[in-house]
Amino acid sequence: MSLLGAHTPAAVPGARFMDPAVLARIGNLELVSRAVCDGFINGLHKAPYFGASVDFAEHRGYVPGDDIRRMDWRVWARTDRYYIKEYEAETNMNFTVLLDVSKSMDYGSRGITKFDYARILTACLTNLVHHQRDRVGFVAFDSEVVEHVPPSAKHMDTVLHVLDRLKPGRPGGKMREPLHKLAEHFGRRGVLVVISDLYEDPEAIVDAVTPLRFRGNDLVVFHVLDPAELDFGFSDAQAFEDLESGDQMPVVPDAMRKEYVSLVTAHVDALQRRFSEVRVDYELLNTSQPLDHALYKYLAGRAKRTRLR
């Protein structure tokens, strides 16, 4: 992570590494996303892999029908052979965020709910991608699809507007149904980002998510969890109510913290393992961490991927 280490906050102090709880209070998603991303982009200004559309990838032999404009004349001058310059990525791609808006996302123990965090993250990613002139789309789902904004270069405002309106209300069910339905819609290759708290069996999650990769889409899964869900830092014996099902049960946190944490860790480990098996990027996000962290992780992961290819 020399990347992260090399770039200390410089350009817009205060915008970067902002406490998500503070950002959540701003309210205006566009403002928030800009505040985060501007600083972010400035900070990454000299990153060698930034801007995929102009990235040189390799040479290949000229075949009749190739555009002569892409001929590498310098190579011809040296070797007297025709070579075509190939570039890394398509300059503009479809970028769609799939946001879980089930009731369980509406939980936050430290001033910001997972939903708000995910919303800001979505806004930031969308903003970032929009600056690259990529097409942005957005899908909100719980047990079925709630909102669908198809990817388009002009949909940035729509996405932010929809995001602004969204409220988690209904309990989420199986992810499989809405995601499988959506998988058919992403015909063109692009990047899909799934943001959810993934309260389901790891196998069921992987089963639900993998179809999204089928048409060559890059898939990134952000697993958003509140710190309380990770460390179970309750002390008093109380009744706990499930946000989705409404079930209640008495809980003595001190007595079961160890078991709970180990179960969550096992869950995360299982997800990590299974997603890496199916070549899906998986990232666990803690809502107490600044948003930049998530963005770095995303981009660093993308960069690594690109280099490998």
Binding site: S104, M105, Y107, K114, D197, Y199, D226, E229, F234, D236, A237, Q238, A239, F240, E241, D242, L243, E244, S245, D247, Q248, M249, P250, V251, V252, A255, M256, E259, Y260, L263, V264, H267
Partner: peptide, 24 residues
């Protein structure tokens, strides 16, 4: 302490998996 307000928690998926007696 038991009668305090109920804690709303995203999912009791893992809580329910912990053996019951230690909760009760």
């Amino acid at each position: 302490r038991e009668k305090k307000q109920i804690i709303r928690f995203p999912s009791l998926m893992f809580v329910q998996r912990v053996p019951y007696k230690s909760i009760q």
